[in-house]
């Protein structure tokens, strides 16, 4: 078995304060992260940000890693945490168009949807499992193109499902 570039000895040195070892470890890990995020995200700037955030996470948590031979899993989790944090954040910050406080006050004052009468479960039950899966993936942060890849279908088909779901919901909400 070939010796790892991320040998437990190197990791231990880095943990013990050997700055050169730590730099070498992070430099090597940076290459793994870079290739990984570029393949996952595509966008160079975003991938670079994720690389830096992941490296920072590893840098911060390295001292607490009890088993240096588990560095690969430790690094993998750092990358996955950052990746899914990114997914979750990439839509939510922009989609504030229809927040209740932005709607006309005359609607809010008497609208049953602004109170507790709104039954999300009932609304969800009207959706097909397929449409619901798409909406849930979308809320996790995946793009339509990514959802299409996950579900092995086309982006157009995914958007069509969302459109139908909205129209179904519209008939319920508007009544």
């Amino acid at each position: 078995m070939a010796l790892s570039k991320f040998s437990p000895t190197l990791v231990k040195r880095a943990q013990d304060g050997d700055e050169a070892a730590r730099n070498l470890l992070l430099e090597r890990l940076g290459k793994v992260f870079k290739n990984y995020f570029q393949a996952k995200i595509g966008n160079q700037a975003v991938a670079d940000d994720l690389v830096q955030c992941s490296l920072l996470r590893v840098h911060s948590g390295l001292a607490a890693l009890k088993q240096p031979d588990k560095f690969k899993a430790f690094a993998m989790k750092a990358a996955l945490f950052e990746l899914h944090d990114y997914y979750r954040g990439r839509h939510s910050s922009k989609e504030k168009t229809y927040e209740p406080q932005m709607l006309p006050e005359k609607q809010n004052s008497s609208d049953e949807w602004s109170g507790s009468k709104f039954d999300v479960e009932r609304a969800l039950e009207t959706l097909t499992p397929h449409a619901r899966r798409i909406l849930e993936l979308r809320e996790h942060g995946y793009k339509y193109r990514e959802i299409a890849e996950i579900l092995e279908t086309t982006e157009t088909a995914v958007k069509m499902q969302v459109k139908r779901a909205f129209e179904k919901m519209r008939s319920i909400f508007a009544d």
């Binding site: 939510s92 168009t97 229809y98 927040e99 209740p100 709607l103 006309p104 609607q107 609208d111 949807w113 602004s114 709104f118 999300v120 609304a123 969800l124 909406l135 849930e136 809320e139 909205f166 919901m169 519209r170 319920i172 909400f173 508007a174």
Partner: peptide
């Protein structure tokens, strides 16, 4: 339309 969109967003927020 406002009611529809608000309900739609309530649904999404609830899922999120």
């Amino acid at each position: 339309l406002a009611r529809s969109l608000m309900g739609w967003h309530r649904l999404r927020t609830s899922l999120r």
